[in-house]
């Protein structure tokens, strides 16, 4: 992960303040982050620290108050970023295949071509056999796979994932984590993965960026160089996990915000 690597997202001095009912709530202040092409970066922090807001700014669901965000798509790329929400947010009136094809509408592709691409994306997540089902017929894990396929179908450069596995049971979550790593390795996408689960972050990512404080800012940026495939055990990166914990709790104590 040298500095020589080309970055796909460059964030400089990003600040964001919400204003609601006359109350100013500063969520992020002066955040810098450079995301190299092909990296798997986890962003961890406690709730309310602005990590989801950061992803929402990148995809355009929230507007930064100041700072710059530069996104460098590959030439000819229609949609450089794709979002995976915490809850799958499938459109219940569309069958699975039409949900996956959703982002391709308006791309100039014919319906057949869109369905073809959607089918390929479903194959990547291993759900091609459920293409004609309705979302309500799927399990939570299947829905989240479909949501991932919907993001993959637009062939983005970067996957923005906002706590995508936090609502799943432990067994399903572990299966989907491994699935995501496999997909990341096969497709070479860049992944920005927001989570509050430090173990999940260190298990999945190349690099863990810790946000803390109020307003949130980057308090630590750690490389995880454990070889892949990684083993899932408590003692995998004990020093790293403990260090990140300390960063987060230290900030909380300093801010006096408590837990």
């Amino acid at each position: 992960m040298g500095a020589a690597m080309e970055s796909v997202i460059d964030i400089e001095g990003l600040s964001l303040t919400f204003e609601r009912d006359g109350q100013r709530n500063e969520v992020l202040r002066g955040l810098d982050l450079s995301v190299p092409r092909g990296a798997f970066i986890a962003i961890v922090g406690s709730s309310g620290v602005g990590k989801s807001t950061l992803l929402r700014v990148l995809i355009g669901l929230a507007r930064a108050s100041s700072g710059t965000v530069r996104i460098a798509p590959r030439p000819g790329q229609r949609q450089p970023l794709a979002f995976v929400f915490q809850d799958s947010r499938l459109l219940p009136w569309r069958p699975v295949i039409e949900n996956v094809a959703f982002g391709l509408e308006g791309s100039g592709l014919t319906r057949t071509e869109r369905r073809q691409k959607a089918h390929e994306a479903l194959e990547i997540v291993g759900l091609a056999h459920l293409a004609e089902r309705w979302p309500h017929q799927l399990s939570g894990g299947q829905r989240q796979r479909v949501s991932l396929a919907r993001a993959l179908a637009v062939e983005p450069e970067v996957l923005l994932m906002d706590e995508p596995f936090s609502a799943l049971d432990a067994i399903t979550r572990e299966a989907l984590q491994d699935e995501l790593v496999r997909i990341w390795q096969v497709t070479g996408k860049t992944v920005l993965f927001v989570t509050h689960d430090i173990e999940e972050a260190t298990y999945l990512a190349d690099r863990v960026v810790v946000l803390a404080g109020s307003p949130g800012r980057v308090v630590a940026d750690q490389i995880v160089d454990a070889p892949r495939p990684r083993r899932r055990s408590q003692s995998q990166e004990p020093d790293l996990v403990a260090g990140i914990r300390q960063h987060i709790s230290g900030e909380l104590l300093l801010d006096g915000t408590g837990i």
């Binding site: 995809i59 669901l61 929400f85 809850d87 947010r89 459109l91 959703f102 982002g103 308006g106 637009v154």
Partner: peptide, 12 residues
């Protein structure tokens, strides 16, 4: 509103 956000996130 969450479903409207999905449309927003995919550029619609």
């Amino acid at each position: 509103r969450d479903l409207i956000e999905v449309a927003d996130a995919f550029g619609f």
